[in-house]
Amino acid sequence: MALVANARMYSATAAARADWKTLLAWVLARAELGWELIDHDAPAPLSALWAREDLGLAMMCGLPFSQRAPRPTLIAAPVPSPARYHGRPVYFTDIVVRADAPYQRLEDTFGGVVGYTLADSMSGGVALANHLAPYRQARGKRLYRKAVGNLIHARGVIEALAAGTIDVGPLDSYYHDLLRHNEPAFAQQVRTVASTEARPIPPLVATAALKPGELARLREALQASTTAPELRGVTERLLLAAFATPDRGDYDVLAQIARSHLPNFEEL
């Protein structure tokens, strides 16, 4: 079976998409793997990409990674360069409002309209519901008068906020930082009022069985990519400090959160 590679998940802008393709092509060449680098652009669902059995190197949300059986092979995880990541392969969910909105705290948004990307997305749905659950329990009634879903990705959340369709919504922090770095005018339409605690960042995985030596070559090539002089501009634009190799058990907490009794968005 011919394997494929893809980096759709953090292709936050057209430039980021091109840079990820450049980086992955370099990695495959260094690892001596003649796999095809495929596109899977929005609005095609990421779940369809992750369901494939021929992924040799693809970014996958940590939640489906933790839930899939058999679990994919964890190859590596990006370490974002901004200071708030402290050199760790983690990310947050930034909870944002429109830049000119009157809200100063998350609590100020209660009574308004909450948006989310997909109910089964960690950063765009589950992490937000988990963060809001204690507020919902303490309040004893709904936090928001309405929920708007199926915004697909962080760009959809920002567009909905700018249009006034929603009052508050979640952004994957690494995706958010890539937007702020590479497309600041678009990102400046929103501002952050709260962030969730750090969670393991979506990793690069393989759903297909790798041949002996392929995993080691991929990990070496990914690590080398962040110090290669010819990729310096690419990694700087991608805010990419390094690739780490976390334990796959680090992601178990995500499945545990999803299994807990979280309020659905129609109850928030």
Rank of each mutant, 00 (worst) to 15 (best):
residue 177 D to W: 02
residue 185 A to E: 12
residue 191 R to I: 00
residue 132 L to E: 05
residue 158 I to N: 02
residue 163 A to Q: 03
residue 79 V to Q: 11
residue 116 Y to G: 12
residue 117 T to H: 12
residue 191 R to P: 01
residue 98 R to P: 02
residue 119 A to Y: 08
residue 104 Q to V: 00
residue 99 A to W: 02
residue 146 K to W: 11
residue 78 P to W: 08
residue 199 R to M: 13
residue 176 H to A: 09
residue 195 S to F: 09
residue 83 A to M: 11
residue 99 A to G: 09
residue 110 F to P: 09
residue 69 A to H: 13
residue 126 V to F: 10
residue 109 T to N: 04
residue 84 R to V: 14
residue 118 L to P: 08
residue 112 G to R: 03
residue 181 H to L: 06
residue 74 L to G: 03
residue 122 M to G: 05
residue 143 L to N: 12
residue 147 A to N: 03
residue 190 V to E: 13
residue 121 S to K: 01
residue 161 L to K: 06
residue 79 V to S: 13
residue 76 A to E: 04
residue 80 P to R: 09
residue 87 G to S: 07
residue 145 R to E: 14
residue 175 Y to Q: 07
residue 100 D to Y: 00
residue 165 T to V: 14
residue 188 Q to C: 13
residue 190 V to Y: 12
residue 179 L to R: 04
residue 180 R to W: 11
residue 178 L to W: 05
residue 74 L to R: 01
residue 172 D to A: 03
residue 140 G to D: 10
residue 196 T to Q: 05
residue 102 P to Q: 05
residue 152 I to C: 08
residue 99 A to N: 11
residue 114 V to L: 02
residue 198 A to C: 10
residue 152 I to P: 04
residue 176 H to C: 06
residue 82 P to F: 10
residue 118 L to W: 14
residue 73 T to W: 03
residue 151 L to R: 05
residue 187 A to R: 10
residue 185 A to T: 08
residue 140 G to K: 14
residue 71 R to D: 01
residue 127 A to N: 10
residue 194 A to Q: 02
residue 73 T to A: 12
residue 117 T to I: 15
residue 86 H to V: 12
residue 105 R to T: 00
residue 142 R to C: 11
residue 117 T to G: 11
residue 90 V to Q: 13
residue 120 D to R: 15
residue 90 V to S: 12
residue 200 P to Q: 10
residue 92 F to Q: 05
residue 149 G to L: 07
residue 163 A to G: 06
residue 159 E to H: 13
residue 134 P to F: 04
residue 82 P to H: 06
residue 144 Y to R: 12
residue 81 S to F: 05
residue 144 Y to T: 07
residue 96 V to D: 06
residue 142 R to M: 15
residue 181 H to R: 13
residue 165 T to F: 09
residue 179 L to Q: 07
residue 198 A to D: 11
residue 177 D to N: 03
residue 94 D to K: 12
residue 101 A to H: 01
residue 173 S to Y: 06
residue 123 S to T: 12
residue 91 Y to A: 15
residue 154 A to W: 11
residue 85 Y to A: 07
residue 168 V to W: 02
residue 172 D to N: 04
residue 164 G to A: 02
residue 131 H to C: 06
residue 129 A to V: 13
residue 144 Y to C: 07
residue 115 G to F: 08
residue 156 G to R: 10
residue 76 A to L: 03
residue 75 I to F: 13
residue 126 V to R: 12
residue 88 R to P: 01
residue 197 E to T: 07
residue 82 P to I: 04
residue 82 P to M: 07
residue 156 G to Q: 09
residue 73 T to S: 09
residue 97 V to H: 00
residue 178 L to C: 06
residue 115 G to P: 11
residue 198 A to F: 08
residue 170 P to K: 00
residue 197 E to P: 10
residue 114 V to N: 01
residue 168 V to C: 03
residue 107 E to D: 09
residue 102 P to T: 00
residue 140 G to Q: 13
residue 176 H to S: 14
residue 131 H to Q: 14
residue 176 H to Y: 08
residue 68 R to D: 14
residue 101 A to T: 00
residue 192 T to K: 02
residue 88 R to D: 06
residue 198 A to Y: 09
residue 72 P to N: 04
residue 145 R to G: 15
residue 78 P to H: 08
residue 74 L to N: 01
residue 130 N to S: 11
residue 102 P to D: 01
residue 182 N to Q: 12
residue 99 A to H: 06
residue 173 S to G: 11
residue 135 Y to C: 13
residue 138 A to F: 06
residue 107 E to K: 04
residue 135 Y to A: 14
residue 135 Y to M: 14
residue 95 I to K: 05
residue 175 Y to I: 04
residue 160 A to D: 05
residue 201 I to F: 14
residue 199 R to A: 10
residue 131 H to N: 10
residue 194 A to C: 07
